[in-house]
Amino acid sequence: MSIYDDTNPWSAKGFSHPETPAVPHPPARSRRLDLELDEGARRLTLLERDHNALQRAYEEQRARLSQLETRLDAFMAVQAREREDVPSNDHGAHHVIAREYDAFVEQRVQGLARAAGNSTHGLVPAGVPAALWLMSQICTVLFGPTEPGTAAVLAVLGRGRLDPLAPQAARLRDIALDLRRRSTQTGLPCHWDFELVPGEPLDEEWQQAWASCDRRLPGQFVIAPAYIVAEHVYSLQRVYTNVSIPN
């Protein structure tokens, strides 16, 4: 018997019956859509993984911050008990002022000094970093014995009242006045201490070398004064150290 169906002429030639439907291939557009969906699913998986990692890091940082706050509260409570001459409310207020003062010096005062440091011919001793010297002069104006003025800040920078840095100087003056005012409102004796004997080693109880200076070298000038409240140091004096200041 022939393997071909004699009644089907298409069979003898190896073809399927004309009425038998061929298996259709998926259109190109459908394949592209499948690929795009696969790529979207892959990206979504990666984003979910990154989100989970960030969430874990965030929770870890929150836990660390909570621990630090707990330790700080405990430390301040102990300090308040030890400093019986300083009422707890005033003690906390001065700690806040000290932290704001530190940030003010490191960010705003340093920022103004760096901005003015490009044109300081004749204002800075030879061999001394211009920004650090100008920081010293700005702090002397802002936290010295007399109330600071914007013109005085600009003067130590060699600038006039119409200079582009004048608004920045005025803002620093306003912040310094606010710190000074709040520091005296508690009624406790407090001051910013500039005392320094050039060439003497630093006293670690109330002085520290500026970050870019060598703490083993003697102090040459005060960059930012110490903040002293009722004979207690709330913020260390920042000092420029070197073997000497070149003439």
Rank of each mutant, 00 (worst) to 15 (best):
Q168V: 14
V23A: 14
F221K: 01
G117S: 15
Y234S: 00
I97D: 11
Y4F: 11
V96E: 09
L47K: 01
E59F: 07
D163I: 07
Q185A: 12
R29Y: 10
P164N: 01
L154Q: 00
A211C: 10
Y234K: 01
R32P: 07
R49N: 13
L68C: 04
L46Q: 12
S88C: 14
E106R: 12
P26Y: 06
E106I: 08
P125R: 00
G92L: 15
G14P: 06
S212Y: 04
D34A: 11
Q107M: 10
A152V: 02
R83Q: 13
L46M: 09
F194D: 04
P164S: 04
S136N: 05
G219C: 01
P189K: 03
D73C: 13
Q79S: 15
D50Q: 14
G14I: 07
R182C: 09
L68N: 12
L162M: 14
A131C: 07
G199N: 01
E39R: 10
G158Y: 04
G117W: 09
Q220V: 00
K13D: 14
A98Y: 01
S88W: 11
G111V: 01
H191F: 10
L157R: 02
Y227A: 03
W206S: 10
E69T: 05
T146R: 12
T184A: 12
S88D: 14
W192A: 06
G122P: 03
A77M: 11
L68M: 12
D163Y: 05
T241W: 02
R171S: 14
A211N: 09
G219L: 00
P87F: 03
V96K: 08
A57Q: 10
V86P: 03
L202Y: 02
V243I: 09
A152R: 05
P198I: 02
P189Y: 08
T184N: 09
V153Q: 01
D73P: 05
A169V: 06
P27A: 15
V197Q: 10
Y58S: 13
A103H: 08
R29E: 15
H95R: 08
I175E: 07
E82R: 11
A103K: 06
L142S: 05
A166H: 03
Y227G: 03
L54H: 12
F143R: 03
E231G: 06
D50S: 10
A155G: 00
G158V: 03
V229Q: 02
A98D: 05
R171C: 13
L112Y: 04
A224S: 07
F143T: 00
R31V: 15
D102Q: 13
S2D: 11
T20W: 08
P198Y: 01
A57P: 00
W206N: 11
G111F: 04
L33R: 10
P164H: 04
